[in-house]
Amino acid sequence: MKRVLLGLAAIALAVAVPLPATAAQTHPGQHGGRTPDNLRELSHKIKVYIGSAVAVTPLADEEDYRRTLNREFTHVTAENAMKWAEVEPQRGQYTWDGADAVVRNAQRNHQKVRGHTLVWHNQLPEWLTTGVADGSIDAAELRGILRDHIFKEAGRYRGKIRAWDVVNEVVDDEGNLRNSIWLEKLGPGYIADAFRWAHQADPHAKLYINDYNLEWNTAKINQTLNIVKDLKAKRVPIHGIGFQGHLGIQYDYPADFPTVMKQFTDLGLEAAITEADVRMVLPVTPEKLATQADYYKRMLDTCVDNRRCVEYTVWSFTDRHSWVPGWFEGEGAATIMDENLAPKPAYDALLTVRR
């Protein structure tokens, strides 16, 4: 994901946006058969958290972005602000401003928070990767560093995070455990250790394994199922499976997704779609927008149809701040609102979902 600089003076002064009466005062089941007015109301109606990734600079600096985020969503994820390189850029020197801003804004606006992420192979601080590479940080020290990081971050937000992505993208596209510094230096046991430490740091948070292409990649699905079964057999506290949901309309929709999700929830896990977006090859056309809307809706339908799916989060709600153009040349328009925050057909399609 693209990195952001933290300019947060404005966020400390930002006031909470009042919730619309329909969102703040209604309860699940009180909406009858009418189409909800917004995504927050939809969330109450279908009893699934509807969330978005949050970029801290626009949260601080763009009033329309902040107002829309707080009106529409019942759940938020810090897009980058909780990643290790952001919170500890220098060893022992912590910068919590961005993460704190996301959490404070969520609390003011009655939103739950997904912590993202405690263990990943990307966006690690340079002092850590350099130390491992040159041998100045050996395996024993690395294990201690990882433990301390989890306790420091999960402990800081104890009681404020609904769910943590404890380990992120630990399986590669061939279905092997990813060859990260964690696997290379600590062996596969680091996954169980991370969950145990996260649970000790915050016993009330739901703890997830999270990955991309898990909606359709058979090798990745099978390996992740094996990891989950092994963790549960060892009584490791794992509570959820996160399907990132990064799709593209140039590819077929993963029609087996409901069955895949059920394989995991049948193991006793709750499920979440954690990073949904649907990119397209530019330029945008009405036909492409219609296909995009269908993909977004089908993902939410899959969640609603599985009683253990509790969250549907989009990876940014506006093309103004989407990560897609920076990573996929010639592609974009991946979110549910355009650069001016005007809803697209995908937004309207989500509002038609029923439980």
Rank of each mutant, 00 (worst) to 15 (best):
G159W: 02
T130M: 01
I150Y: 04
W127F: 03
L118F: 03
R156S: 01
W120Y: 09
D138A: 06
K160L: 15
G115F: 06
Q123K: 05
S136K: 15
G135K: 04
L128C: 09
L146P: 01
I161V: 13
Y157K: 08
I150M: 05
G115Q: 06
T130K: 10
W120V: 03
W164R: 10
D134M: 08
I145D: 11
I150F: 09
A133H: 04
V113R: 02
S136N: 14
R156A: 06
K152A: 09
R147L: 09
H121T: 02
I150N: 08
R147S: 14
T130A: 14
K152C: 05
H121M: 00
R114C: 00
G159L: 12
I145S: 09
A154Y: 13
R147H: 11
Q123N: 00
R156W: 07
L124Q: 04
A133C: 01
R147P: 03
T130F: 02
G144M: 04
A154N: 06
T129S: 04
Y157S: 06
I150Q: 04
A163Q: 09
A163Y: 15
T129Q: 02
I150A: 08
R162G: 09
D138Q: 03
H149P: 04
A154L: 13
I137G: 01
L118R: 02
L124M: 12
R147C: 05
E141H: 11
G155R: 15
E126H: 13
W164T: 03
D134P: 05
W120G: 01
L124E: 00
N122G: 14
Y157C: 01
T130N: 12
D138P: 02
I137Y: 06
R147A: 14
N122Y: 06
S136T: 15
L118C: 02
L146S: 07
I161E: 11
R147I: 13
A163E: 15
V132M: 08
N122M: 14
E153P: 13
V113C: 05
K152T: 15
G159K: 11
R114D: 11
L124C: 00
G144I: 05
G155A: 09
D148E: 07
H149S: 02
T130L: 06
A139W: 13
I145N: 14
E141Y: 04
T130D: 08
F151Q: 15
G135V: 04
I161P: 12
L118D: 02
R162S: 11
R158E: 10
T129E: 08
H116M: 10
R158Y: 04
I161Y: 08
E126K: 11
G155I: 09
